[in-house]
Every structure is written in C-alpha cells, then in structure tokens.
C-alpha cells in the first residue's frame, strides 16, 4: 500500500527506471519524495520536475533540506543557474566572460565545500559567506 511520506534525498547510483511507472535517475540527482510502499519511493526529480515515478529506497540517501545552511543552498541554486549561462557563453564564444565565469564558478564551488565541511570558525564562516555573496552579486550583474 502506498503511504504518504514527504521527504527529500539524493540518488547515490544511476537508476535506469526500468520498472512499471519507474523514474530514471542519475547519481547526484536531488529527489522530492511524495509517498512510499515497502522498499520503494515515489517522487520527482528536480532536474526534470514534471515527471513522477518510482525509484528503489536503497538508491536514495535521505537529506533534510531544512538543515542546510541558507548560504550553501543559495550557492547550489546560483551555481546551477550560472552553469546554463556559462554554456551559453561558450556557444556564443564570449571567451573572456566564459573563462572568468568558469573561475568564479570554481571558487564558488570551493567556498561551498569549505562551508559544508563545518570546520570553519564563525569568523571564517562569516568572511566566506560575505565572499560568496559578493561573488554571487558580481555574477548576477
């Protein structure tokens, strides 16, 4: 029986989705779960938000998004938006902007990692957050 259970998680392996009503996932995909039945979840994947389907529970590591640092969450979202812009810059051969944005993306990735490593002191965290926010501001301009 399917029981409502709202959760979030990450795919830890590629799932081909080859079952009835299956939803194929790539490793790293973030999923929103709506309901469960035994060893299965049913939900959607943020990368293709329109489809809902089944994936095995053992392919998913649950995550609590409310526990995530807001700056890290902002980082994640911004990085994904920028990557689309960045690919467009590549196609348009905006070489200078392309290389610059790549550098900023990499440094943002590094800052995000440091924030997540939870080993920074408060001062270091604040500094880094400021740094990230200013980079995001730069990029959004």
């Amino acid at each position: 029986m399917w029981i409502e259970n709202r959760k979030c998680g990450v795919a830890i392996h590629n799932w081909d989705g080859k079952v009835k009503h299956g939803l194929a996932l790539d490793v790293g995909d973030f999923v929103e779960i709506f309901e469960e039945n035994g060893q299965w979840w049913r939900g959607s994947c943020t990368r293709k938000p329109r489809s809902i389907g089944l994936f095995p529970k053992n392919y998913i590591k649950l995550k609590d998004p409310s526990k995530e640092d807001p700056v890290v969450a902002e980082c994640t979202q911004v990085l994904r938006e920028w990557s689309e812009i960045w690919k467009k810059l590549f196609v348009e051969r905006e070489t200078y902007k392309f290389t610059t944005l790549r550098k900023v993306i990499l440094s943002l990735l590094e800052s995000r990692r440091e924030l997540l490593s939870a080993t920074l002191t408060q001062d270091q965290t604040l500094d880094l957050q400021m740094n990230v926010i200013s980079k995001i501001d730069w990029g959004n301009r």
Binding site: W2, I3, E4, K20, V27
Partner: peptide, 30 residues
C-alpha cells in the same frame, strides 16, 4: 561537479544496489 553538488557528505554507492522486488500495487495517492 554541478551534478554532484548534493552528494557532498553523502557516500556514493560503489556498486549498484540490488533492486528490490516490484511493489504489490500501483494505487498511488498522488
């Protein structure tokens, strides 16, 4: 790197996990 952003701190499975037997019914709530 961007595809794996959400796996920070999560262990990626080395081998494909075993696929469980399919559910008994498909009567979804949503």
């Amino acid at each position: 790197k961007l595809r794996l952003l959400d796996t920070e701190g999560v262990d990626i499975s080395k081998e494909a996990p075993e696929i469980p037997p399919e559910p008994e019914d498909y009567e979804f709530n949503f």
